[in-house]
Amino acid sequence: MTLEPPISRVATDRPETAKPILDVLSLRKYFPIRNAWGRRKGWLKAVDDVSFRVAKGEILGVVGESGCGKSTLGKTIMGIHQPSDGDTIFEGRSTANYDPGQARKLRRHLQYAYQDPGASLDPRWKIRRSLHEPMIIHQPELDRDQRAERVSEMMRAVNLPETHLDLYPHEISGGQQRRVGLARVLTLNPSLIILDEPTSGLDLSVQATILTLFMDLKRKFDLTYLFISHDLSIVRMICDRVAVMYLGKVVEIGDTEIIFSNPKHPYTRSLLSAVPTVGGRRVTDDFQLEGEPPNPGNMPSGCRFRTRCTMAQADCAKAEPPLRADWPGQSAACFLAE
């Protein structure tokens, strides 16, 4: 059970020219900030003008600081949150003008695996019932036995014993809840899955099983993944491209290997330097990124990273750096990157 990294990660046909399955166009999601009396006193720009394109069969990694808007981005693409502005085109059609019934059907092809696996399962439902639910909703043609068979198959695929089907969510371990959550969204074989930290809370061996499953499904059904993760070594191993977010914006995006070997944005650099590695120097001893993360409700002028950036110049405060596609297979939003 060895998971090989994709052979040629620096794809020869640029994903931009390959057939897109998802187009995110200047997407924004703002949450109101309220004062002590519940009056709105500003906007928290959780996702602020994010655009990218995902090609069919591609794995796009999304990494970034905790609270920078990765989950909000995923949920807005899913339609769980209404976008404040912008649009997403999924399989050639804007998701904004679906009526509720169509939107429900769309969910069969577009799925979101929650970051909090325990909380995303109904506490009063046994695991078995939760796993039957997606098929009851989307595949009414299946009878009980067919569904049960599929459920067993998924349980085996995520390495869980079938006896766990009769337990309640609070009776299984955190990593097992995570796997149940994944099994639940994978049963439908959707064409695009947004995986929100799918491997956190899993040990290395189970991680290998799950990642192998992802790759198998991708091979068999040509699935596309949006892979949100904090585990940079896994992102590097399985993602074709990666987007780095900082405070609601994509600050760098491009082919994984290029970004990991030659990051252009200073935030990407400090992120990569903070990965703890066994046997390496201890990150906690000499950590680079200083300063508090700024308040997302009251963003610094110009470049959002400038308050913590070691390279910041006077110009950085004046205007927001655009995402420049100045390098082959890589774009970064920094004035000084070259």
Binding site: G174, S200, H230, L271, A274, P276, T284, F287
Partner: peptide
């Protein structure tokens, strides 16, 4: 602390680990 840093990015994780240390 039961897996206290699973949902944190590496930079914030480093600060939390520093704090615990």
């Amino acid at each position: 602390a039961d897996e206290p840093t699973t949902a944190l990015d590496v930079t914030i994780q480093a600060q939390i680990l520093k704090l615990l240390k």
